[in-house]
Nucleic acid binder design. Structure first.
Length: 467
RNA sequence: GUGGGUGUAGCUCAGCAGGUAGAGCGCCGCGUUGUGGUCGCGGAUGUCGCGGGUUCAAGUCCCGUCACUCACCCCA
């Protein structure tokens, strides 16, 4: 026998967990739609040459390729097989770029889309990190230009969603790559790659601590002077405590600049983003300036975001993204700037479960009709039909058995209500409704069952469902 | 790609200096032929990852191998 098991790096859930996961997807989807974003889906795999436009680097090492048996045999027979024709997407941004370039003339700009699909990365699995996982993205793509106001709208959507998810207080942290780049220029660090390396190191501040980061900064690879390293560390220590405080920090950074235009632009952009964010009604306690946010990805050019849960900083960023100048440069001559954010839902779900913020959900089955006596099965089936026509998700026990067992089945399956039709009920033309969670039951007239169950379902239960 | 760790029941793990395998949880049954989750009693379950070696004897020691896992790189 072959031991049944999932491939490493995949997350598979039991039904009641899956329902909890689906509920989160529903919240995210409705949040995206409420802000006027349109849905798209793209294929799980893309043509390799389309997907891997930038050769080399980390991403290619992590790409899963797709091959039919036919093409596998064909390539095995070749001297130098080369890469397979198809590859699984490793994020949703590259497919979006392709999509926008391909359908450019049928889309209206700014193009606001959301996309919630699985992506694949062939990296070494790690705690809470998966090789197949959901990304829930929103992006706004402009043509030729896109005002920084859009950079404020994206986090406003995220604010709504994380509020609705009800997983405790959170903070959307903002920074701007131009501000950072300009700051580096002032320090004489002008090479783009060098800046990125420094940013990447600075991004580890929370993880490694200021001393370790400082050591690396002045080390051989990055080669900063002591003064430069101190200046960088002082800058990235900036965290705002309120809207006014954030603007104050920005004024100071600008005043201390030795004249970088890029820095001035970055400061101006951040100021506008913060202001629009406030005007959109996002409470100032829920966003902050954090000048250590860098984001590893090199394609970000302006605003960058990370979102953290206030009560669980150890989880790290649960939603991140930023602004990029040119989404689809590899696919089209059109200039398509964009801004977007992504929720890595698989990882988030796993982490929330670890810290006990999400558990299993109640079953999608709202009422179970047990079968006490085969003689009354027709009455049970008729009851189920009535409940279903009343819009109530109903399951009937078709196999029978002891009532105790059927109740245990309901309990384990996370079904809260049981509608019993036995000898007594048939004789009196009634139904007994049992609430397994409240450990309570009552009897109603047969023709009042549907409204009675509706009333029960409408009452929220403050006792959470045990795992 | 680099560096650690671990493989024993469905799950989490214990198993002493080598002497033919254990706990908790879960599962099944009964107590309760119309009442689950609680409680009580009873029960089932193992090629001790795989291959070789040492030994009278290996879950335990040695070698190899495979798998899994944690961290780094990178990132959701």
């Amino acid at each position: 026998m072959i031991r049944p098991r999932t491939a490493p790096g995949t997350l598979e859930l039991l039904p009641t967990e899956q329902i909890a996961f689906q509920r989160m997807l529903d919240v995210i989807r409705s949040g995206y739609e409420r802000f006027g974003f349109l849905p798209i889906e793209t294929p799980a795999y893309e043509l390799t040459d389309v997907l891997l436009t930038k050769t080399g680097g980390e991403t290619e090492r992590q790409v899963y390729f797709v091959q039919s048996t036919g093409s596998l045999e064909k390539s095995a027979a070749q001297e130098e097989p080369g890469l397979p024709e198809l590859a699984l997407r490793f994020d949703l941004t590259v497919p979006l770029a392709r999509y926008v370039a391909e359908h450019e003339h049928q889309l209206t700009f700014p193009f606001r889309r959301y996309q919630m699909q699985r992506v694949y990365r062939g990296e070494r699995p790690q705690k809470g990190r998966y090789r197949e996982f959901y990304q829930c993205d929103i992006d706004i793509i402009g043509k030729d230009g896109l005002s920084p106001r859009h950079d404020a709208e994206c986090p406003a959507v995220i604010h709504t969603i994380f509020t609705d998810l009800d997983i405790g207080p959170f903070t959307i942290q903002l920074n701007n790559r131009k501000l950072m780049r300009g700051f580096f220029e002032d320090l004489g660090i002008t090479d783009g790659e060098h800046q990125v390396s420094v940013l990447r190191e600075v991004d580890k501040l929370d993880k490694r601590g200021a001393d370790a980061v400082r050591e690396t900064l002045v080390g051989e690879a990055l080669g900063l002077t002591e003064q430069a390293a101190d200046a960088v560390l002082a800058l990235v220590a900036v965290r705002s405590t309120s809207h006014a405080d954030a603007l104050g920090h920005l004024d100071r950074v600008l005043a201390e600049s030795t004249g970088s235009e890029v820095l001035a632009t970055g400061v101006a952009e951040l100021r506008e983003v913060l202001t629009v964010l406030r005007d959109l009604g996002v409470p100032e306690s829920d966003y902050a300036l954090n000048l250590s946010i860098a984001r590893g990805l090199d394609y970000y050019t302006g605003t960058v975001y990370e979102t953290t849960l206030d009560d669980h900083p150890e989880i790290g960023s649960v939603c991140s993204g930023g602004r990029y100048d040119d989404l689809a440069g590899q696919y089209t001559k059109s200039k398509l700037p964009g801004v977007g954010l992504s929720i890595g839902l698989t990882r988030l779900f796993w982490q929330l479960r670890e810290v006990g913020l999400v558990g299993t959900a109640e079953s999608t089955v709202q009422v179970l009709v047990p079968q006490l006596d085969e003689a009354y099965l027709p009455q049970c089936l008729a009851l189920a039909t009535d409940l279903r026509q009343g819009g109530i998700n109903t399951e009937v026990v078709l196999d029978g058995g002891k009532l105790g067992k059927q109740l245990r089945y309901a309990d384990r399956a996370g079904i809260r209500f049981v509608a019993i039709v036995g000898e007594q009920e048939v004789a009196a033309d009634t139904v007994t409704i049992k609430d397994l969670r409240r450990q309570d039951q009552f009897t109603v007239a047969r023709d009042e069952v549907v409204p009675a169950v509706r009333v029960e379902l409408a009452q929220p239960l403050d006792v959470p469902h045990e795992d």
